[in-house]
């Protein structure tokens, strides 16, 4: 059951048959903690079908923690996470893995693993010990490789790839998983600007042509504003603002969230808000 067919046609099913305004993923009054250390307390967030949501905020604000909880990698100590209205922690994890794909921050691949084998691993939720390479698996992996433009790298070891190629390989794996929800934790970390744009263009195509709903944590405000429908700005475990990028990225918000003194002007290319830093508030030390 491949939910998208050819790269060019961009046909897809799965996401398309859902109500476009439906809430796919919801954090409901969640409290997240590592041991005694509470990172987030009483946070609500809705992820609407067919949108790209970018979560921004300073280091340590809890944005990755929130993403891990939404992807059931971290169990909330209070509140709940709902996937399509059902509690994610009460849904069998393999069933969740057919709906929601997760790309962790700096993921680990075994040494010497080929790109094809990495991407094929994304099929795990659809496989069993006796069914490890079905026709559907093969179709999905071939399509995912082509979509991400790494088909010609299929037999290369992942550890020999450049940073940008490697990130595309991981996204390809998440894509092969065939989920219509994708959670990406800082997919552009360690990439130079050209490769950051390349990865985000890919995310945009996944959204527009393959109908994926995406939640991603990003560092770069200008890119986040350009490549998302919805921005969520976090500070110290709370959502300070969320909504259309042009409503969220304001000079007042940058001061409040990042302690940054900046001008916000329209991006001359995309028209989305663009941040021009002036300096850092002395109080944010």
């Amino acid at each position: 059951m491949t939910t998208w067919t050819t790269p060019a046609a961009g046909e897809h099913i799965g996401a398309a048959d859902r109500d476009p305004g439906a809430v796919r993923l919801r954090a409901d009054d969640v409290r997240l903690a590592y041991g005694e250390h509470v990172v987030i307390d009483g946070l609500d967030l809705d992820v609407v079908n067919g949108t790209v949501t970018a979560v921004i905020g300073p280091n340590g604000c809890g944005k990755s923690t929130l993403l891990r909880a939404m992807g059931r990698l971290l169990k909330p100590t209070g509140g709940q996470v709902l996937l399509d209205g059902k509690r994610i922690d009460r849904t069998p994890t393999k069933e969740v893995a057919k709906i929601l794909g997760m790309l962790p921050q700096s993921p680990l691949a075994p040494e010497g693993l080929t790109v094809a084998d990495l991407v094929a691993r994304g099929r795990h939720p659809h496989q069993a010990w006796y069914r490890q390479w079905s026709g559907d698996d093969e179709d999905a992996v071939a399509t995912a490789l082509e979509w991400t433009g790494i088909a010609d790298l299929a037999e290369r070891p992942v550890d020999e790839l450049s940073g940008g190629q490697r990130q595309r390989a991981w996204i390809s794996m998440a894509l092969a998983q065939g989920t219509d929800l994708l959670l990406l934790d800082e997919p552009t970390t360690y990439l130079d600007l050209a490769h950051q744009v390349e990865v985000l263009e890919l995310v945009r195509r996944l959204h527009r042509e393959a109908g994926r709903t995406v939640v991603m944590v990003l560092h770069d405000l200008n890119l986040a504003a350009r490549y998302s429908d919805r921005l969520v700005a976090m500070r110290a475990g709370r959502i300070v603002a969320s909504g259309d990028p042009s409503d969220v990225v304001t000079e007042a918000l940058l001061a409040e969230v990042f302690g940054l003194d900046a001008r916000v002007i329209p991006d001359p290319v995309s028209g989305t808000p663009m941040v021009v830093p002036i300096g850092v508030h002395s109080s944010s030390g």
């Binding site: 059931r72 990698l73 994890t93 794909g101 997760m102 790309l103 962790p104 993921p107 691993r121 998983q177």
Partner: peptide
């Protein structure tokens, strides 16, 4: 072990990746 080898292959990745793939 051969039946479990499929899961063992996925455990080779980080814990988060393995969990994301639906492995307990």
């Amino acid at each position: 072990a051969l039946v479990l080898a499929h899961v063992l292959g996925a455990l080779q990745y980080g814990d988060d990746t393995a969990r994301g793939l639906g492995i307990r």
